[in-house]
């Protein structure tokens, strides 16, 4: 668990990169139970996908981002809430850059609010940093 006194506004999560290849997307389909053909069937995706091709689950991007937040927080028990706005789909075979930044520290509640994001190699947003947040509980230390 992170200590309240150690967290400053503007602090960033260590940057993570994840390559979302077809195998990972298929494994996510199995792990999550979301078998929508958009994620693995190129012929189906050609007809209905916003990109014209197969796309990764939005929740795979958020799951990867949540893992980065959880690591920073010191465990899932310190993650109070997550919210994400999926700005655009992540094409299968793309690499995501995942990040977060402390926007606010509430000393009374001992929580930090982070903006969180996932972007493609060209910098375009998959998870929109303006509308995506994580709230993490901090250790208030001697303040009780």
């Amino acid at each position: 668990m992170r200590r309240l006194e150690d967290v400053a506004i503007g602090e960033e999560l260590p940057e993570h990169f994840s390559h979302l290849d077809q195998e990972r997307v298929l494994r996510y389909a199995g792990a999550s139970g979301d078998y929508n053909r958009l994620h693995w069937d190129p012929a189906f995706a050609a007809r209905v996908s916003p990109t014209g091709g197969v796309i990764a689950h939005g929740m795979l991007s958020l799951g990867l981002l949540s893992a980065a937040v959880t690591e920073w927080a010191g465990g899932p028990e310190h993650v109070r809430s997550l919210s994400a706005s999926f700005r655009a789909p992540c094409p299968v075979e793309a690499t995501l850059r995942l990040g977060g930044r402390v926007l606010e520290v509430d000393a009374e509640a001992a929580t930090a609010t982070l903006a969180i994001w996932a972007v493609l190699a060209d910098g375009s947003a998959v998870i929109d940093r303006k509308r995506s947040r994580a709230v993490v509980a901090l250790d208030p230390g001697g303040r009780g």
Binding site: G58, S83, F86
Partner: peptide
Amino acid sequence: WNLVHGGQSF
């Protein structure tokens, strides 16, 4: 099934 996920919170 012609859908996309727009947002999610927990």
